[in-house]
Design a protein around this nucleic acid. Structure first.
Lengths: 355, 355
DNA sequence: AGTTAGCACTCGTTATGATTGAGTGCTAAC
DNA sequence: GTTAGCACTCAATCATAACGAGTGCTAACT
């Protein structure tokens, strides 16, 4: 059977209507609301075909049709036209995310919140990761008799602290001089070389403090590899409660449970796999492997710093979510975020990472 | 009318039963389940009295009675006996919170989660605040042409970063020397004196960098006053969905909305008012002013570092929550937390506050 | 006096059955 | 190929009745 022009129009009508109303849509409704110039009977015949092709299904005999998973897939891949933002949406976005936040955490929180309010779905945003980033500078600051803080400044001006313990600890001046030495080592050698003779030689003045030095290098390595886990910012979880598909409290409970588990959220955002940096990806219903979220769809994308993807944004709604709006909004916010992050990290405008 | 022994027993039975079942409890049920040695008819008479006294009420004519707000209040203040932890609970707690976490954030998150799992309610925990704490040491670390990081080490070995901007910035060595000067000023003068001639005199060598210096002092002051807002850790929000009182999705939605607003949570935890450091406080139903949470009760307490309250823990459940269990668990966890925090901050064991 | 058995009464909940109406598939005519 | 017409299905709605948990009151009993 061929998916001709008319079938496409009907399928589109069914999906549009179902997205708006959450009610199965029947032939009469389509004939009335969408100007296809054909009678309900004809529509019924076409719908019968569409059902056979697997794009729509019937909850029960005497009900209208609802889109199936592959129906949505077909719509999203081939039929959905990207629409412009409405004036209201554009206006909202303009005010929601201010350029002059000076903390990454606020920016991320703000972004999550703005998206959640605009779309009325749930959003998850990761903080920008600094994995693979180069280290610009490190400085040891005295804290205690056996404790120092290693302040690591990365290439993009993010600042991370690490607590360093060692039995033997130089005084403030000693720490300052040691910092200078370590910086010159970091500048001249790869991280893998830290056990080499030449590095040992460079640091021989501080031979007494080998424990300290080893711990400092450990901290440096963990910064570069970003072994500590990323922060996630979530907003609008409660929005899902507004949708009829989750008015069953038990369903809602399962979903909420999922949202409390970080690992789950990370998988949801696409986990390890690195999707193309500038593509918006849509995961429909059961396409994600998570049982709890089988009635949800995810629209997700990476945001960038320079050319590299440094973080992810996901918008989660019912399978029947408004893909077209969601994609437009996400697209716009990604564009905006890229600019802001560029200004924040790159331009050295600001990059407060305090704790 | 007097609240005699028998009335007390009956009120207690009603509350216990209602907490367990969430169903209005009638005279026959009490006679059957609780061995009071009196007939339903007698119980009915007493219940009628209890209702007149305002401790219980009737949802409708042909239903049993449920405790009123002042009924719970009476129970909580005068009748509830603090019970021991069960073996299971004790065992769970022992495993749930590990002593060797090395980040305050993990500890708080863990605490929130453990409490939520144990009680099956929702918990909110603030991170320990360092407000009012003395500053031990400060060091400026170069970041950028116009940017430095001020690393502030407080008396209890917490470490906070602040980004400092200034048009005119000394080089690394200059920053190090300036740090030394500022430290000696901080040691010898009160923070209010920073505009005094003597302080100006002490820093005159760095007159070119007045913008930088002003910004550093601002950062120091904000650390001491803790003007930046505290982190909150929430867990088990979804638990509330399990209770029949919130099976109406709209009610649940309102509550969830409240939980997404930080200000709300802070008021919930007792906001500004400083309650006695070592008392567990119970706020029943509408006693809190928040309309959205009128069907919830809060059991809350402060945890300490040394003698000072440094943070708050709140457990939120339906008004019909198990106060007795909640209080015991909270009491135990506070005790435990005090020990851990003492070890973490005081003993200088560790206090990683990275960002 | 206090306690209790008995009973009429209330009222939410549940079960039953009838009605409605949205929607379908099929057939026959256009 | 399209459409009007019609019988059929089935969830949702509604009214009614039956049920039962619970009460308050009265009168009898200790």
């Amino acid at each position: 059977m061929k998916l001709n022009e008319r079938k496409i129009k009907i399928l589109e009508a069914i999906i549009t209507d179902y997205i708006a109303t959450a009610e199965p849509v029947g032939s009469r409704t389509i004939a009335r609301k969408y100007d296809l110039g054909i009678s309900p009977a004809t529509i019924r015949n076409e719908m019968s075909d569409l059902e056979e092709m697997g794009f729509i299904e019937q909850p029960h005999t005497s009900a209208g049709r609802i889109p199936s998973q592959s129906g949505y897939r077909m719509y999203v891949d081939n039929m959905m036209h990207k629409r412009m933002l409405t004036d209201d949406e554009a206006e909202f976005l303009k005010n929601a995310i201010s350029f002059n936040v000076n903390r990454v955490e606020y920016l991320m929180q703000q972004t999550a919140k703005a998206l959640a309010m605009l779309t009325n779905y749930t959003t998850v945003v990761t903080e920008p990761k600094s994995s693979g980033v180069k280290i610009k500078h490190i400085q040891l600051v005295p804290v205690d008799k056996n404790t120092a803080a290693a302040v690591v400044v990365t290439e993009n001006n993010a600042i991370k602290n690490h607590i360093i313990k060692a039995k033997n600890m130089p005084d403030a001046d000693g720490l300052y001089r040691l910092s200078g030495k370590i910086n010159s080592v970091l500048e001249n050698y790869a991280l893998d070389d830290i056990n080499s003779d030449r590095v040992q030689e460079a640091l021989k003045e501080f031979a007494d403090y080998s424990e300290l030095i080893v711990n400092v290098f450990k901290a440096v390595i963990s910064t570069v590899r970003q072994e500590e886990d990323v922060h996630l910012y979530t907003s609008g979880v409660r929005n899902l409660l507004g949708f009829p598909e989750f008015s069953d409290v038990n369903k809602a409970k399962n979903i909420f449970q999922a949202f409390e588990e970080k690992d789950m959220l990370i998988t949801l955002l696409g986990g390890g796999e690195n999707t193309a940096a500038d593509k918006i990806e849509i995961v429909i219903g059961g396409e994600n492997k998570m049982e709890e979220l089988k009635d949800c769809s995810i629209v997700r994308a990476n945001y960038r710093y320079g050319k590299n993807s440094v973080g992810k944004i996901g918008i989660i709604g019912p399978t029947r979510m408004n893909y077209s709006q969601t994609v437009s909004v996400l697209d716009e916010i990604i564009r905006k975020l890229d600019t802001i992050i560029d200004a924040m990290l790159g331009g050295g405008e600001d990059g407060d990472h305090d704790g």
